[in-house]
């Protein structure tokens, strides 16, 4: 069996194991769904009135941002899940088996991707209820969700490195989460970047989150003519950049995580 086939075979077995957990202990899934719904409602009805984005209905503007934030936050599940397995010693068991060294990580990131999928479906329905619509047809819709899930999957690999480095589930939970706040808010997810101080605007424009969000708005027709898009290359090629960012993140963090897994020990 080649290495890749082995990794997929073993990875799928671990994925199934993780999915059984979601089924039997749905708490994490439920809470990871409630949070984005709260964000949708809060921004749509609380902040929405105060934030004016010229040229667009704010609820339309908002959804791409919240989708992106949700899959980014969702990655912290990967950190928590891995830290949990480490503290319970099951990773020692896996590491003593003649299985692929990538399988535990592939299984984790894949089951978290499916978890994300469920959350996004619920969120999408919630968005439709508050008035968000996709205006570009089925292909645009699917392309948008493709970009979204690819990014979520990439973020999971960053979280995997965090989870393997954390010394407890609690640490993994905070560490997997906290950096995502500035990362998602310092972007065009909730506000046009031209409202930021001028020195901060390029940072926000080049933030991968901004590329994903703007890419989604383009693919879903939520970015009408005249909408402030930031400036420079990211404003012109958001979908391309979004894909590149995701691929680059996986290319860097997947090998990092696997190398870390080989050396990791139970605490």
């Amino acid at each position: 069996m080649s290495q890749v086939a082995g990794a997929l075979h073993d990875g799928w077995i671990v994925t199934k194991r993780n999915l059984i957990k979601i089924k039997r202990v749905p708490d994490l899934l439920i809470f990871s769904t409630i949070q984005p719904i709260m964000f949708v409602l809060l921004f749509a009805y609380v902040f929405g009135g105060a934030i004016k984005v010229p040229g667009v209905n704010y609820k339309e503007y908002l959804m791409a941002g919240i989708f992106t934030q949700t899959v980014a936050f969702g990655s912290s599940l990967t950190a928590i899940g891995l830290a949990d397995d480490l503290t319970k010693g099951i990773v020692d068991r896996f590491r003593s088996l003649p299985m692929s060294r990538a399988a535990v990580l592939i299984g984790r990131t894949t089951s978290d991707l499916l978890n994300n999928l469920l959350v996004v479906v619920v969120m999408g329905l919630c968005g439709l209820l508050v008035g968000w619509r996709i205006h570009t047809g089925i292909l645009g819709a699917l392309a948008g969700f493709g970009v979204l899930f690819l990014f979520g999957y990439a973020m999971s690999w960053i979280a995997a490195v965090i989870g393997l480095a954390a010394r407890s589930v609690e640490v993994a939970q905070s560490a997997g989460f906290i950096w995502l706040f500035p990362m998602t808010f310092l972007s065009n997810a909730f506000i046009p970047t031209d409202t930021l101080p001028s020195w901060l605007q390029p940072v926000a424009d080049w933030n991968p989150i901004s590329s994903i969000v703007l890419g989604l708005r383009d693919l879903w027709g939520n970015a009408p003519e005249g909408l402030a898009r930031g400036s420079g290359f990211p404003a012109q090629h958001p979908v391309l950049l979004a894909a590149l960012w995701s691929v680059a993140i996986v290319a860097v963090f997947m090998p990092l995580a696997i190398a870390k897994y080989r050396r990791v020990s139970t605490r």
């Binding site: 671990v14 039997r24 202990v25 010693g89 068991r93 896996f94 003649p98």
Partner: peptide, 20 residues
């Protein structure tokens, strides 16, 4: 080091599969 959320059977079957 067995998985709390799996049944006894599921644990053994999974580990057998991972032993290839």
């Amino acid at each position: 080091a067995v998985d709390d959320n799996l049944t006894g059977y599921e644990n053994l079957e999974m580990i057998g599969r991972l032993y290839q």
